[in-house]
């Protein structure tokens, strides 16, 4: 059963087995993600549980146009980390805030294309020069702003920005050209 089907079962039948399966898959990596922001294991575990509880509660709000289940869970975990660990306001909302038009057209081949896309992103990440991958990981996983990355690596902020920019362009072309 795919993650998406599990989520649908939670939404349709409050299926606790489907929930446990999702928890076993995502709980451990979300906990690891929380710990990288610099918190202890106990707090990280609480936040992983809270992330998954959000998944349970909001399962019926999830739909195809929100990307893969992992993407949705990542966004929930990211915002919880800003709110609970950094104690800052989360301005950037979850993907469910805006109801985009033209979501029906992606429904049919969605499962296949999102797996292909995932592979492409993974390849693009693996293909980044070491110093570009480093700044991407420091941004996403450690949650460090440009200035903090610059301090960590003892480089000018401008260098960090240009590395992230280069990484962005390479990662971006992996999922189609930007429509500018």
């Amino acid at each position: 059963m795919s993650d998406r089907e599990k989520l649908e079962r939670i939404a349709a039948n409050n299926d606790p087995q489907a929930y446990r399966a999702l928890f076993e898959k995502f709980g451990p990596i979300v906990k690891a993600f929380m710990m990288r922001q610099g918190t202890d294991a106990a707090t990280a575990e609480e936040l992983a549980q809270e992330t998954m509880l959000n998944v349970w509660r909001k399962a019926s709000l999830y739909s195809l146009d929100k990307g893969s289940v992992t993407t949705w869970i990542f966004a929930i975990a990211r915002n919880l980390r800003i709110d609970q660990l950094r104690k800052e306001k989360t301005w950037v909302e979850l993907p469910d805030t805006y109801v985009e038009q033209a979501s029906s057209e992606i429904a049919a081949d969605e499962a296949i294309s999102s797996e292909q896309e995932r592979q492409k992103i993974k390849q693009a990440l693996d293909g980044l020069p070491k110093e570009q991958r480093e700044v991407v990981v420091l941004s996403f996983i450690e949650g460090l702003p440009h200035r903090a990355i610059a301090e960590r690596l003892q480089l000018p902020v401008g260098t960090i920005k240009s590395r992230i920019r280069l990484a962005y362009l390479k990662l971006r072309t992996a999922v189609g050209d930007p429509d500018e």
Binding site: F74, A75, L125
Partner: peptide
């Protein structure tokens, strides 16, 4: 949305 997917892949 595209870069949320990058985050998901790293997660």
């Amino acid at each position: 949305a595209v870069f949320d997917k990058v985050g998901a892949t790293l997660l």
